[in-house]
Amino acid sequence: MFKYLIILFLFLFSATISAENSLVQSSESVAIDSSIALAEDEINFDQAAELAKQQRLKTQVEFCAPCHGKNGLSSLPIYPNLAGQHQQYLLKQLLAYKYRRRKDAVMSPMVSRLNEDELVELAHYYASLSSDISQVEINGEFNESSEASENTNEN
């Protein structure tokens, strides 16, 4: 009887130790897994934020395009070309519209709903476009080469 008790005790004891070991191992692996997952999350978060920013910029540019052209070259005589303009100048004007230092019935409402970071992005975008005037419209219509350049600008 006593023998059985010892065997049972030993059995329980070893079972507890092995259970503890496996518990420690599994918690370690969980910790490693979660740190990897965290790093991946950070990368994904950065990528997602960048994508969201690009998407937002694209949407905003669509609002500008009817007057300032898809590629920043305006097809209407009273609206300025923006392509290749200095970023600093563009930003200064956008901020002036936002805070009504430069008054314009069209531009102020367009710009005032955007925050300053978005205006920086917009100024950067238009400054980065080519101002090559050989690609501008002929008789108010975009020619094929300017259509092609618009596509590359979008990409």
Partner: peptide
């Protein structure tokens, strides 16, 4: 100078309007 705009190839009507607005004080 980055603070000052390029004017080459800018829209004629736009430039004329801005100059008139500067002159009249509409654009300050």
């Amino acid at each position: 100078i980055p603070m000052y705009p390029n004017l080459a190839g800018q829209k004629e009507a736009y430039i004329a309007k801005q100059l008139k607005d500067f002159k009249s004080g509409t654009r300050k």
